[in-house]
Nucleic acid binder design. Structure first.
Length: 461
RNA sequence: GGCGGCUUAGCCAAGUAGCAAGGCGACGGUCUGCAAAACCGUUAUACUCGGGUGCAAAUCCCGAAGCCGCCUCCA
């Protein structure tokens, strides 16, 4: 299969380090507030990556962190920890806050059929691993001390700017943040932060009581669970210039290796003409989506209509379009369930088309074209084989089509009785009574379709 | 100021040289007691604009415009 690599800015053939196996690390949520659907686009992306890998026969180990400490609110590493700020505002301990939002995250993820990574690791459970990693970095001569704590010397790593393609010489130091005169280079960053007595979350370390820098946790935990060389690291495109650049520098400083073989980044969900973000004040959560009548699967479908590397326009219309498309697929499945499997041979070219598409840097939109070809052909042939193939594809799409079509087929007995009564009325050519019963059924939330084989009922869209 | 990205039909969105996937929506038709579903057909002589290189460009090169992101935690 082919995959894009941010480091080389090219799409090239994926070669796993260990044949048949793949290690994937995903930058997970910071659990101090509800995750929004923009965040979830990223996790749908990494989930899709995992699913495609598994679909193609790889054995995947997927690792994701949960950041429950260490991301600062204000500049210059002196600010209050986000979790602590949240804790103060809500009158709870940082742990309570973190656990609450972590649970909320995984609840929403489950609604979106995002498979739980094989390893989910909390930063606070890995402080000793982080200290050990920082110790290695310091021992290798990549760190120095200031009044803030231990600082990473980016000047020691010639490849520092490679991932982001930054032109450090042209960067305007201090353009947006005051320069720390103690730092050797403007891009230097904290590995361990001390002298912050107001922080609730602190640990003892060789550099004094304090807490780890922003980027240490991902380096420490990815190496711990996937080794000093692993296949893929994913995250949002915003992580390229700072977080992943720093992570990569730490990785090299600690191990002397290019730890991550391939970096993959998803583009943003765009609302109006802006990204969706808490700073922008245009957040939408999964719950709010549901209140607006859009199912999580509908949102997931929307995400699958665009390439992960392209910005995706999130509008009321695009969302409705996705929801309608999904309804069409479920309708097809519901109809197809009643058909026999005839001839599976005609399916093969479409299966190949789907497989080729998703193996080409996760081109799910192209894969969906194969799905719709199957819908059309399947309808013409009245062949359940098409639906079986689509269910097989759903291992990648993650829409939960089997359950959705199954749920659509569940009809209360009260409705069944009304349908039977309507059938009798129709046989008697009593159209007035027939239409009256149809309205009654409709009020109960169901829709009747008359087919040559008899009446069919489904939940009203 | 630096770096990165985007601009394809009413909307969403594939396609990175050889007659512009797919979905939604809309319209017309077949079927139906009427609907619904399904099927058939129509819906970009055209890919932001201007140059250039090719037999051939949405696709490569140069330039312009608009928009977005990152450079501060942020998917």
């Amino acid at each position: 299969m082919k995959l894009y690599n941010t480091l080389t800015r090219r799409k090239d053939e994926f070669e796993p380090l260990v044949p048949g196996k793949v290690g994937i690390y995903t930058c997970g949520p910071t659990v101090y507030m509800f995750s929004h659907i923009g965040n979830f686009r990223a996790y749908i992306f990494s989930d899709t990556l995992r699913r495609v890998m598994e679909y193609l026969g790889y054995e995947v180990k997927h690792v994701m962190n949960v950041t429950d400490v260490g991301h600062l609110t204000s500049d210059e590493d002196t600010g209050e920890d986000k979790l602590e700020k949240g804790a103060r505002e809500e009158g709870k301990t940082p742990e309570e806050i973190a656990r609450f939002y972590e649970q909320a995250f995984f609840d929403d993820a489950a609604k979106l059929n995002i498979l739980k990574p094989h390893v989910v690791c909390r930063a606070t459970d890995h402080i000793s691993d982080m200290i050990e990693l920082v110790r290695r970095i310091e021992a290798n001569g990549y760190a120095y001390r200031t009044s803030v704590g231990l600082i990473f010397d980016t000047g020691k790593y010639p490849e520092y700017a490679l991932l982001s393609r930054l032109n450090l010489a042209e960067q305007q130091a201090g353009a947006r943040v005051a320069v720390d005169p103690e730092r050797r280079n403007p891009s230097d960053f904290a590995l361990w932060i001390t002298n912050q007595p107001k922080h609730l979350m602190q640990w003892e370390s060789p550099w004094g009581r304090g807490f780890p820098g922003w980027h240490v946790e991902c380096s420490a935990m990815s190496i711990k669970y996937l080794g000093e060389r692993f296949d893929i690291h994913t995250g949002g495109i915003d992580h390229i210039p700072v977080h992943h650049t720093n992570e990569r520098a730490q990785n090299f400083a600690a191990t002397g290796k290019e730890v991550v073989v391939r970096w993959m980044h998803n583009a943003f969900l765009v609302i109006g003409d802006a990204r969706m973000g808490k700073s922008e004040g245009n957040l939408v959560t999964i719950s709010e989506l549901q209140e607006r009548g859009v199912s999580p699967a509908g949102f997931r479908y929307l995400c699958q209509t665009a390439l992960y590397r392209m910005p995706l326009n999130f509008t009321a219309e695009s969302l409705q379009s996705a929801q309608n498309s999904l309804r069409g697929l479920v309708d097809f499945g519901r109809n197809a369930q009643a058909w026999p499997v005839n001839d599976a041979a005609w399916i093969e070219p479409f299966k190949q088309e789907f497989k080729d598409a998703v193996a080409d840097d996760l081109n799910i939109p192209q894969g969906l074209a194969a799905v719709w070809s199957l819908v059309r052909e399947g309808n013409q042939r009245q062949d359940r084989a098409a639906w079986e193939a689509i269910l097989d594809f759903d291992r990648v799409l993650g829409l939960g089509l089997e359950q959705l079509a199954g749920a659509a087929a569940e009809v209360p007995s009260q409705v069944e009785e009304l349908v039977a009564a309507r059938e009798r009325a129709r046989k008697a050519r009593d159209w007035a009574e027939s239409d009256r019963l149809r309205n009654e059924i409709s009020e109960l939330g169901f829709l009747v379709e008359d087919t040559p084989a008899g009446a069919r009922v489904k939940p009203r869209p």
